[in-house]
């Protein structure tokens, strides 16, 4: 079958899709968007998390046919989405508080400021990326959290990210990254 839907603001089309194919498979193998990850393909790990009409879903559990005519945002579209959204006023933790973990931005990344969404830059700066396989799903979930709750408590962050497994970091630096992104959001305004 043919499936047509919007991915990261652009209409995309896939032909010869078998009815059993997941959204994850179509993104990765038919649309050249391998950023969404295939860690479990059973809806337990969150590494394939995308936004489907704004709602975070495990794309491995969504049949590709269900996405016909709908809008999908993947990790590859986070930076564009962040630019469109712009900054908003918040009353969260201060930047200094968020930097309590003392990461030092020596050796800043090759990407120029503005090329990454704030949550992506925060993950790099806080050391929240090791093997990185969980990272795309966590970024989509954390970005969605900060969109609806600009100054989350630690308990809020843990609850929002509880569907995303990470095996490398012990989550501490992922918490740091979300705190940092929230605090930087404040600074923008």
């Amino acid at each position: 079958m043919r499936v047509t839907f919007t991915v990261n603001g652009r209409e995309q089309e896939a032909d010869d899709v078998w009815e059993g194919e997941s959204l994850l498979y179509v993104l990765r193998e038919r649309m050249g968007l391998p950023g969404s990850k295939n860690a479990c393909e059973q809806g337990e790990c969150g590494s394939c998390t995308v936004r489907l009409d704004d709602v975070p879903v495990c794309s491995c559990l969504v049949a590709a046919g269900q996405v016909q005519g709908r809008e999908v945002v993947t990790v590859e579209g986070l930076a564009d989405q962040a630019r469109e959204r712009g900054g908003r006023a918040t009353d969260g933790t201060t930047l200094d508080q968020a930097k309590g973990w003392q990461a030092k931005p020596h050796g800043a990344q090759a990407a120029q400021p503005g090329q990454l969404a704030p949550i992506q830059q925060a993950f790099i700066d806080a050391g929240a990326v090791q093997c990185g396989f969980c990272t795309p799903g966590l970024l989509v979930a954390a970005d969605e959290l900060l969109e609806r709750n600009s100054s989350p408590t630690d308990a809020d962050i843990r609850e929002a990210l509880s569907g995303n497994l990470c095996r490398c970091t012990g989550y501490e630096k992922i918490l740091d990254a979300v705190r940092l992104a929230a605090a930087r959001q404040d600074e923008v305004v």
Binding site: L33, P34, G35, S36, T74, V75, E76, A79, P105, H106, G107, A108, Q109, A110, A111, L116, Q120, Q121, F123, I124, D125, G127, V129, G132, T135, P136, L139
Partner: peptide, 12 residues
Amino acid sequence: TLRPDGTLKVTG
């Protein structure tokens, strides 16, 4: 220093 593969890993 930050990871040289960090940017590639956060952009997918």
